[in-house]
Write a protein that binds this DNA or RNA. Structure first.
Lengths: 189, 189
DNA sequence: CGTACATCTTGACAATGACTAGATTGCGCT
DNA sequence: AGCGCAATCTAGTCATTGTCAAGATGTACG
């Protein structure tokens, strides 16, 4: 532990980020209160403002960090399906980051760091999907929709009944199998 | 128009719901303020409370309405792919309902009407997917993830660059084609 | 040692959600 | 027709929050 009472708090920025991630993961970004975070860190109510300017600033910082983490995660993928799996794994491991990243109305829309981080992650996704599809844009949308939909539904507890105790990652793999082999079925109706 | 000054307002409940949908569609559920809605309807700040109890009550009412609309829409689907298309179309046509439906932290979690409406819509989905898959649960998750991911990414403007002016519904159809024919590709890496 | 800077505190203000008590309207019942 | 009652809306209040401005405090660097 880092002395806890260094005055000037040692690293308030990280302390607030950590507390924010806890709150968001538990109750969503809406429940997040700057004053509450300050209380948890044992500082005055206006202290967070110096590090993040305002609420949007804090959430933008979280989104930037999230895009960085996601890019690093996706980089490890060795196949198209693995890419999806890593995406889902990221969402499950970092639910707070994931939620914030996809709530544009909570972020500073033209923050340069945010734009850069988002762009970098998107390129990661594009190059990873490239080669698996004739139309790259459609391919990216297909893979992304699949993984993102599963992740979103998972985090919002909409799959609880369907998973029925099954491991989410395993279910996601079964699910991609299902899709790729269902070409024989008359899926187009 | 309905006289605008009926005192006791004629139908305050619907007026507030309508205004709420506008705000949510434009700026998300977080930006919604009960007092602002009251102002728009020309009533006192506490008037909405009588119809919806509180913020969660209002949002829950919207979610219930949304599940009803979605169920009605899905009922018209004539194939598995059409089901997905209808799902996407619903999200695009009713973005406010759609967003609220999938933010459990904003809703009264055990509201009986909400639980009933949600259950009814899920059954709709289950029976529609049934028969297209060996493992029904996996089939539902696959179809739902696909459609839900596309809809979510679309509404959060994450597909803007990829669509590149293309019609979203058309793109979704191309995307499902892509998935079903990609069985020949070594998608499993 | 002292000056400049980052960090944090204190105080204030407007806005909001929620609650209570009270006013007004309209409907059913006799 | 008239009375009472419930539904609907108003007015006032309180705690909480985000944000801003000014000032205090500790730190680093000359």
């Amino acid at each position: 532990m880092t002395t806890e009472r260094a005055y000037h708090h040692g690293d308030l920025r990280r302390a607030i980020l950590a507390a924010a991630l806890d709150v968001i993961a538990a109750e969503g970004p809406t429940a997040l209160s700057l004053r509450d975070l300050a209380r948890r860190a044992g500082v005055s109510h206006a202290a967070p403002a110096h590090h993040f300017k305002d609420r949007a600033g804090l959430l933008t910082a979280i989104a930037v960090e999230g895009y960085g983490l996601l890019a690093a995660t996706l980089q490890k993928a060795e196949s198209l399906r693995d890419l999806g799996l890593q995406y889902v794994r990221f969402a499950a491991a970092h639910p707070a980051h994931f939620q914030v990243m996809f709530r544009p109305e909570l972020l500073r829309p033209d923050d340069p760091e945010l734009l850069a981080a988002r762009e970098r992650t998107r390129n990661q996704l594009h190059t990873a999907v490239e080669g698996y599809s004739d139309d790259p844009a459609i391919g990216v949308m297909a893979a992304w929709s699949m993984a993102h939909g599963f992740a979103t539904l998972l985090l919002s507890h909409n799959l609880d009944g369907l998973l029925d105790g099954r491991d989410p990652e395993e279910a996601f793999l079964s699910l991609t199998n299902e899709m790729f082999q269902s070409a024989k079925n008359p899926a187009t109706g």
